[in-house]
Amino acid sequence: MTDEPLLRVSALSKFYGSRVGCENISFDLWPGEVLAVVGESGSGKTTLLNCLSTRLLPSSGTASYRMRDDQWRELYRMSEAERRFLMRTDWGFVHQNPADGLRMTVSAGANVGERLMAVGDRHYGRIRATAVDWLSRVEIDEDRIDDEPRAFSGGMRQRLQIARNLVTGPRLVFMDEPTGGLDVSVQARLLDLLRGLVTDLGLAAIVVTHDLAVARLLSQRMMVMKDGRVVESGLTDRVLDDPRAPYTQLLVSSILQV
């Protein structure tokens, strides 16, 4: 890890008219670090994630990203072409619903290969070999490479979406409830896979989740949000084991024990 962060966010706010999406959010994210953003529905987690990934433009505040050449660029001042290029090379975005992040009408191989073709790879054999490699890394059988994601189960789709995002070797991945809508055993497998990939590749990630177990397993640091504001942040284990803010205490004590 270097001494410099990868992403610097300061005083980020997003308002929908007079309603608050998220307000006055500041944090730094270091390379290889996984930050979990937790909170209940409507607390502004997804708004924050969409602002950071430039899918939404914030009402005020700044976010700077350290590019691969170590140049700092302010995200909201970049041209759309640059932002879209960043999105498909150095970044990844894993949607809660895999159908949003995949092309459901083309094969799994093409889904994985799309980013490669988008950055100019024009060799079919190489693209396919990379796709095979990535499918095996996310535990999808090689003989499913020509199947459309429509024929995949929910867990497989989510794994395919992850492969599709990681194929260009991004440094930062945004995840919006990556395990939402999956049953617990599939969730456990996916989390295990994600944890392995994040560690192996040294990915930095911002994971939005309402599931504290996901935060505990994946992240080193977490932010707790309520009503668009950060109520508490710190090391994941510290926040979960010794919650300070009343809302965090409520959240932690709300976990059902089996």
Partner: peptide, 11 residues
């Protein structure tokens, strides 16, 4: 952004 056109040929 014409990567998608090659996706069709890939398919």
């Amino acid at each position: 952004e014409y990567g998608l056109m090659h996706v069709k040929l890939y398919e």
